[in-house]
């Protein structure tokens, strides 16, 4: 383990940034293929955050307006949770795209949100992990809520970590007015494991 065990070095951060970028590109491509729509991608943002700053950070990423949010845990080379904050303008069209017949029932809408989040998280985290040579498993996603204010997606007092590494990417599917912010949060003690994988990756360069 290196000296600054729970913060990434400059090189590691650069590497993570690029790997996230690539992972996101692959995720975008996969999604574009299954939905047959062009997906706009953002530049990934990486930050170390204190738990009590997370709600403000989420608000900073997604802005005002009501959102739906899903959480999902991943485990493998490193563990963490991903929050997918969705802004779904046209849920019914999206539903048709995902094979639902007719107008969506409330529980179908929830299932669809879970599914969209799962696809994005799987593609993105999976893509990052693959480049790092880590094998990732995922637990079932769960719904945090729909029609939430961005500040209330996460309640700091409910978080069990004090600091987290946050990797944010944003997908936009114009046609379905779907925008999704994917925020991967790693507890500080997992950062070392990620750092080791990044070091191994840097060694190959």
């Amino acid at each position: 383990m290196n000296a600054s065990a729970n913060v990434l070095s400059g090189d590691q951060t650069d590497a993570l940034q690029e790997i996230a970028n690539i992972g996101m590109g692959q995720a975008g491509d996969s999604i574009a293929r299954i939905w047959q729509q062009f997906v706009e991608l953002s530049v990934p943002r990486i930050a170390i955050v204190e738990a009590d700053r997370i709600p403000a950070l989420i608000h900073h990423f997604v802005g005002d307006g009501l959102v739906s949010a899903v959480r999902q845990a991943f485990h493998g080379g490193f563990r963490g949770e991903v929050l997918v904050v969705l802004n779904t303008g046209n849920r019914h069209e999206l539903g048709a795209l995902m094979g639902y017949d007719g107008p969506l029932e409330p529980h179908e809408e929830e299932e669809m949100l879970l599914d969209v989040a799962n696809v994005l998280a799987g593609a993105c985290i999976g893509g990052i992990a693959r480049q790092l040579g880590a094998d990732m498993g995922f637990s079932a996603p769960s719904l945090i809520g729909t029609d939430l204010d961005a500040h209330s997606v996460v309640r700091p007092d409910e978080l069990s970590v004090a600091t987290a590494l946050c990797v944010e990417v944003c997908f936009n599917v114009k046609i379905h007015q779907l925008s999704a912010h994917l925020i991967a949060l790693l507890p500080r003690e997992e950062v070392a494991a990620l750092g080791e994988l990044l070091d191994r990756f840097l060694c190959t360069l």
Partner: peptide, 8 residues
Amino acid sequence: VSADVQPL
């Protein structure tokens, strides 16, 4: 050289 590999 791009990470965005969508056909478009």
